Amino acid sequence: MLINGAATMRGQFAGEIAAGPNDVCGFGRVDVTAALDEHMRCDDDPAAAVGTGEMRRWTVPAAVPGRPLKVTLVRTDPPSLEGVGSLVNQLYLQLQAPDGTVLNGDTTQFPTATNNVQQITVASPSEGAYTVRVRGVSVPSGPKQPFALVVAGGTGLKRVP
Rank of each mutant, 00 (worst) to 15 (best):
A34H: 05
C25G: 10
A7N: 15
F13P: 01
A113G: 12
G156M: 10
R56C: 06
I17R: 07
P78S: 08
V139E: 03
M1S: 14
P65D: 11
D31Q: 07
P111G: 11
Q145H: 04
G20K: 06
Q119D: 03
Q109P: 03
A48E: 00
P65C: 08
M9A: 14
P143N: 07
R135F: 10
G53C: 14
Q94I: 00
M40Y: 05
T59H: 09
A129Y: 04
P78H: 08
V30Q: 04
C25R: 08
G156V: 04
V71I: 15
F147Q: 01
T108A: 14
V122C: 12
A152F: 02
T155R: 04
T76E: 05
E82V: 14
N116A: 13
L36W: 09
P98E: 01
V160Y: 08
I17W: 03
V117S: 04
G85Q: 11
V71H: 00
D99R: 00
T107M: 07
V88R: 05
A123H: 09
L95H: 01
E82I: 11
G26T: 12
V88W: 01
A34N: 06
Y130H: 08
A19R: 14
A35V: 10
T108S: 12
L103N: 02
D43I: 03
Q145S: 10
A148G: 15
R10T: 14
E54P: 01
N104S: 12
P65G: 09
A7C: 13
P61F: 04
S80I: 00
E16P: 07
V71N: 00
T114F: 02
A47E: 13
N116E: 09
E127Y: 03
I120C: 03
P61M: 03
V160T: 14
G105N: 02
G26Y: 07
T108D: 12
V60C: 03
E16Q: 15
H39P: 00
R75N: 10
E38K: 14
V32K: 12
Q118A: 06
T76Q: 09
Q90T: 02
A6Q: 09
L103R: 12
V50K: 01
E38L: 14
G136N: 05
A129N: 06
A152G: 12
G15R: 12
P146S: 11
F110P: 01
